Amino acid sequence: MTTTLLLLPGLLCDRWLWSGLRPALGERSCMPLDALTQDDTIDAMVETVLAQAPPRFALAGYSMGGIVALHLAARAPERLSHLVILNSTARPDPPERRIIRDEQMARAQAGGLEAVVETEFMPLYFAPGPTRPTTLEGLVRAMARHLGPAIFCRQMRALRDRSDARPLLPGITCPTLVLGAAHDALCSVDRHREMADSLPNARLHILEEAGHMAPLEAPTAMAAQISEFLDA
């Protein structure tokens, strides 16, 4: 019996983020968690995930979910069989990003969440191409509307105030896949390489035709890499 794979989404994402990935994983037991909506610190998110998770599991975290996954792996290594970090970073927010987050939260609380998503997030989400992926953009908008400004602000505070995870990386010894994308405008290939170089038991793979929203853009290619890693 294979170990259950828990899936942690990113900022303003829910289980629909995995709508293409889960079928591509075939018969593997997957458990998408909407556990990152209740808390406004990374540490509290870790505790919420641990309370909902089975005794032992594999964990895949996307973007903000990847940050939570790194901290969880350091907090409870005995619970993890495998770790997958998707389109994420181990670094803390730089000061200028913290200021931007505060401005975006203020706009969202004033009724401008959809405008923030449309004008500031959407241009950074997808790989460049001759046409924008309108179906995928619609899914991003729908997830944001579903979660709303209160959850957005909780998640933004957690990201703004997170600690540097880089000192944790050498102590995370479980098998780890660091999976990035060549056109990720938010979490660069260099950030993924930095993580893979610091994790003792990691492999790195870069998806060439995707951007930050790789779980939506390239679910089949991502699922193939995850399945090969978990089955190795």
Rank of each mutant, 00 (worst) to 15 (best):
A44F: 07
T48C: 11
T48S: 13
V49R: 00
L50P: 03
L50K: 03
A51M: 10
Q52M: 14
A53R: 03
P54E: 14
P54M: 10
P54C: 13
F57R: 06
F57P: 02
A58N: 14
G65T: 02
G65E: 09
G65Y: 05
G66H: 01
G66M: 06
V68T: 01
A69L: 05
L72F: 05
A74S: 11
R75D: 13
R75F: 13
A76V: 04
A76Y: 04
P77R: 01
E78C: 01
E78M: 06
E78I: 00
R79D: 10
R79A: 15
S81F: 00
L83N: 04
V84K: 04
L86R: 00
S88R: 06
T89S: 15
A90H: 04
A90Y: 02
D93W: 04
D93N: 04
P94N: 08
P95E: 01
R98L: 08
R98T: 03
R98P: 01
R98N: 04
R98S: 06
I99Q: 14
R101I: 05
Q104E: 14
M105F: 05
A106S: 12
Q109P: 07
G111Q: 04
G111P: 01
G111F: 02
G111R: 02
G111E: 09
E114D: 15
V116I: 05
V117Q: 12
V117N: 11
E118Y: 12
T119D: 14
E120L: 13
F121D: 13
M122I: 15
M122C: 11
M122N: 13
P123V: 03
Y125H: 10
P128I: 01
G129F: 10
R132N: 01
